[in-house]
Design a protein around this nucleic acid. Structure first.
Lengths: 215, 215
DNA sequence: TGTACGATTAAACACTCGTTTGAACGGCGA
DNA sequence: TCGCCGTTCAAACGAGTGTTTAATCGTACA
């Protein structure tokens, strides 16, 4: 009766994350998920309890290893640096590369990055509760590392630029939408190219001269 | 019976854009809009024809003057430059400042910027049809201007970086979400500060040294 | 062999959605 | 004063939503 390989629970999880990434959480119904996953409608509530809990499970499954990798990578580099501040590029890579690596690990490489992009906007209602909690420690650590790497910037400016970096990063992999808009059909198809285009942009932006902190 | 000042149609438009900006299009029901605007439910279909048409009206109302201002500002500067290429900062300001100015003109200054941010993600289904069309000419013109300003970059790289700029820009004004996340409660409250923090970040990112265009 | 239990199922629940309908309102021109 | 017409209104439509229920299945354990 049931599919050969994966359990019902896993099949729901995999289908849900794909549909969430495609159309957003609000626009994806449980019936669409269960139909495409070939499971019964009630299976979602049986295995997860509610749609909200399913959303949280989908994100948690990705956020936990992603954040762990980000922290681990940063710590490893700091340990190797013997108290010297890291380069901005090293910090940026420690933050961005785990996202790309983990995306490549999945079946559909673009699902994770598109999912993250969706999270920024639906976060207000749906994801915020645990998304903020999950990311808190990571951002704190990167803020400190960045401050050491660019001591000429005020803590405020570090904040702003990390904020900009997050926005840039998450939108960068929504290639389908915007790159087509600027009409380069070829470039959009290469996510690994995205990374190498993204890094110098972010590094240069982050290391821009300090502003005179008006007001 | 009806409110004193504004017409039913305008009241729907104003309420809709605020709720769309807050919660997204899919998550905002016509009943929520009409209730908050103190108009009858059927008024939306009477004045606009459908929810889709209302969405288009909301965006068009903002996109047309925004894009007109962007084109006009760029043209004025090019005319004044006597064939000399513009500075990157000038181009960036010509693109970004109309957004901020027009946002300030509205009743709630943050509605427009949040609305634009929402559009990037719901665009796939809802907004894409006219959003792409509206923005096509603008992006084409800025692509050319940027290419002249930074001739050392390949056309591909110009594309990528304009793409990054759009993502950064639209997310930058979603301050409620991310800046709180990086915990600077003060900074988030100042949108005009956002602009002055954003410009050097974008200019530096755009003018970063060219990559060796792998593959 | 019988039974206990996690897993799956079809069906229904109460609700919200966008849209449509037909009647009622209200001011303006004939 | 009458009739017109753009507008507003309450009510209902059918479809879709998340969730719940109770019956059934399948298997491991007694």
């Amino acid at each position: 009766m049931s599919q050969h390989e994966t359990s019902t629970r896993d099949r729901i999880l995999q289908t849900a994350e794909r549909l969430f990434a495609d159309a957003g959480i609000a626009a994806t119904s449980l019936r669409a998920i269960t139909k495409e996953a070939n499971v019964n409608l009630a299976a979602v509530n049986y295995h997860f309890g509610s749609k909200d809990a399913l959303v949280e499970a989908v994100y948690r499954q990705h956020l936990e290893p992603l954040n762990a990798a980000r922290l681990e990578k940063l710590k490893a580099m700091e340990d190797a640096a013997n108290g010297q501040p890291l380069s901005v590029e090293a910090i940026v890579r420690a933050f961005v590369e785990p996202l790309v690596e983990q995306a490549r690990a999945g079946a559909d490489g673009s699902v994770l990055t598109r999912l993250m992009a969706q999270s920024l906007h639906e976060a207000a209602g749906y994801v915020e509760r645990f998304y903020a909690r999950e990311n808190d420690e990571v951002l704190q650590r990167y803020r400190e590392a960045m401050q050491r790497a660019i001591p000429s910037l005020s803590p405020d400016e570090i904040c702003w630029r990390l904020n900009f970096m997050l926005g840039t990063l998450h939108n960068a992999f929504l290639d389908a939408g915007l790159l087509k808009l600027i009409n380069d059909p070829d470039a959009a198809a290469r996510p690994e190219n995205t990374l190498e285009q993204l890094i110098p942009f972010l590094v240069a932006g982050l290391t821009a001269p300090s502003q005179k902190q008006a007001v």
